[in-house]
Nucleic acid binder design. Sequence first.
DNA 1: CGCTTGTTTGAGCCCGCTCAACGCTAGTGG
DNA 2: CCACTAGCGTTGAGCGGGCTCAAACAAGCG
Lengths: 254, 254
Amino acid sequence: MTATPPLDITQLRRGCGHCSLHQLCLPGGIDGHELEQLDSIVRRKRPVERGGRLFRAGDPLEAVYVARDGAFKSVSTTEEGEEQILGFHLPGELIGLDALGAERHRCEAVALTTANVCEVPFDQLSDVAARVPGLQQQLMRVIGQSVGRDHDHLGMLVRRDADGRVALFLHSLGERYAHIGQPRDVFKLPMSREDIANYLGLAIETVSRTFGRLQEQGIIEVTGRRVAVVDRARLDRLAHQREAPEPAARSRRA
Amino acid sequence: MTATPPLDITQLRRGCGHCSLHQLCLPGGIDGHELEQLDSIVRRKRPVERGGRLFRAGDPLEAVYVARDGAFKSVSTTEEGEEQILGFHLPGELIGLDALGAERHRCEAVALTTANVCEVPFDQLSDVAARVPGLQQQLMRVIGQSVGRDHDHLGMLVRRDADGRVALFLHSLGERYAHIGQPRDVFKLPMSREDIANYLGLAIETVSRTFGRLQEQGIIEVTGRRVAVVDRARLDRLAHQREAPEPAARSRRA
DNA sequence: CGCTTGTTTGAGCCCGCTCAACGCTAGTGG
DNA sequence: CCACTAGCGTTGAGCGGGCTCAAACAAGCG
């Protein structure tokens, strides 16, 4: 462990208006005095180190979180101790919405990398949202986007073919990176193979083999956690068609 | 097609306060003048017949819906025409939240049975929610519950064993029926085997065989769409343990 | 009574899982 | 500088659950 990670005080002091993610995050679409109201309740915390938790299952809902950088995973644990990853969270994506239903977290949020997060006390957020229609609207939007990502996740799981799941996973990860202004086709996976396998409902060996196969076919290049999409068209085709890669016309169900 | 379905005018006129679901639905936790404000924007529509749609993919978000009786499914269609059922909606569960992210529906809502629905124009709902803290809170709660159901769905899909998926499906359906005051252990499935198969990411034949197997084992009794849970303990055990039913200690991953 | 649609049952094959071993990086301490 | 270790990741062999294909039923409905 190195010394305290570089902590940019000015960055911490600066409000949402100066954050590169502000249009994608809660401040999206609001400004001026309204932005100040939001700013005043956001707590910019010092870095969470890899493996650190924002909250645990059972914790009462106190705040929602957004990473400014780094990545998180949401993990739910069954009574039998089986863990299931419900989602990964990239910068700008709200974390902690799982507690909205019962005011108590159903899963825990674990940092995959060292990460800077903003903490937004939920009741204060509700108050401000009630006064600032733009914020209310944006809050609904980010919640909706989170729901959309869950649906994308479903789409991966229901694609029974391992190639399709992994292709869709890489595709959607690329889109999300592009959305926050990072390269769509080359990135470093913040999560382990085990995490990916768990997330996709596959065995870890299958994920590894699938990466290998995609590389052999010249679709991607993988070295450890570095991924480069070489042939995006082919990746997307794999991702969007259900099963049956080459052999002419084979249509499975539906 | 029979003549106009029995339309209970008095029922339509009566507000949310008289609805048996009111504590579970949007009015939960509010009353008096605040309830009136909500009541005034809810449109109680005449029945939607089986196969009818509340909205289609691409439609702008105009309203969210709640069934007072009957059931719906949310279906997303990929570019290739593949359909994926994202969820089933029982009475009292919000329909249409998929549009929150982009103000445009990503999927369509199809009635599985003839159903009475309430339509709540979304912008008016936002307005009232901003003025009525209790409604704001309840809205968040029902949205959160919907997210929770999506996560439950994930849990079914990731359970690779067909018995586990079906058991979990029946279990969770029973819980949801119990939640709205209906029998937990005996109910009529509103959806076809094909819908179930699609929802669970299984082949239709596998669903059928699995029902048969569960019946043979004396866990459930099925006749067509009628299901009775005979041995709830065993069903729950199947549902909550990942794989490996009998043989002593076999632990798969994680 | 056909016709359609939904459900069940049977036979055989294949993908992904399990088990098991090995390779690769880092990090650690002598 | 190099063993030593521990955690990831990859690779190989073999088996089994669920998919596909196919056909028989069952249940509405004109």
